[in-house]
């Protein structure tokens, strides 16, 4: 079935079977392989994308749901060479090792900070309930999200000024 939606700010139409998962649509049909698939139980969060700005698991979302809606993936965050402040923070705070979980972590973190601009450490850890990392032990991910939240606040203040 044809499905028209906005993907990273651009209108797109995909013609795929209605049973297509959004994670497969992105990876196999849109050549956007930044969205990772790490489990088949909807638990790991490597596949998290933003649907109308809200974090959702693309491995547990059917493509027809996208019709008329707006989807943002990890590829849609940077402006040209300039990383999104949350991506930049994961880089500077060493918020990743192998990087497999990172796209989902960054998308979840952006949604968290949009709802809660100054999250406490406990709120960040609670917000990461659905994102599993096998490498880092989470410490630097939490630090990265704290730094990313501050940078996002600073960039909106700068934009408003």
């Amino acid at each position: 079935m044809p499905i028209s939606f906005t993907l990273n700010g651009r209108s797109r139409t995909a013609d795929v079977p209605s049973s297509t998962l959004v994670s497969d649509l992105l990876r196999d049909h849109m050549n956007l392989t930044g969205t990772h698939v790490g489990c088949d139980t909807s638990q790991c969060g490597a596949c998290v994308v933003l649907l109308d700005g809200e974090a959702v698991k693309s491995c547990t979302l059917l493509a027809p749901v996208l019709a008329g809606r707006s989807l943002t993936t990890i590829e849609g965050l940077a402006k040209g060479e300039k990383l999104h402040p949350m991506q930049e923070a994961f880089h500077t705070q060493h918020g990743l090792q192998c990087g497999f979980c990172t796209p989902g972590m960054v998308m979840t973190a952006i949604d968290l900070v949009n709802h809660n601009p100054v999250p406490t450490e406990a709120e960040i850890r609670e917000g990461l309930e659905g994102n599993i990392c096998r490498c880092t032990g989470y410490q630097n991910i939490v630090k990265a999200i704290q730094a990313g939240a501050a940078a996002m606040a600073a960039s909106t203040t700068a934009a408003a000024a």
Binding site: S42, G45, V48, L51, E54, A55, V56, K57, T60, L61, T108, D111, L112, G127, E129, G130, N131
Partner: peptide, 8 residues
């Protein structure tokens, strides 16, 4: 669940 589960 977690935030993504609660959004759906």
């Amino acid at each position: 669940g977690d935030p993504a589960v609660r959004h759906r």
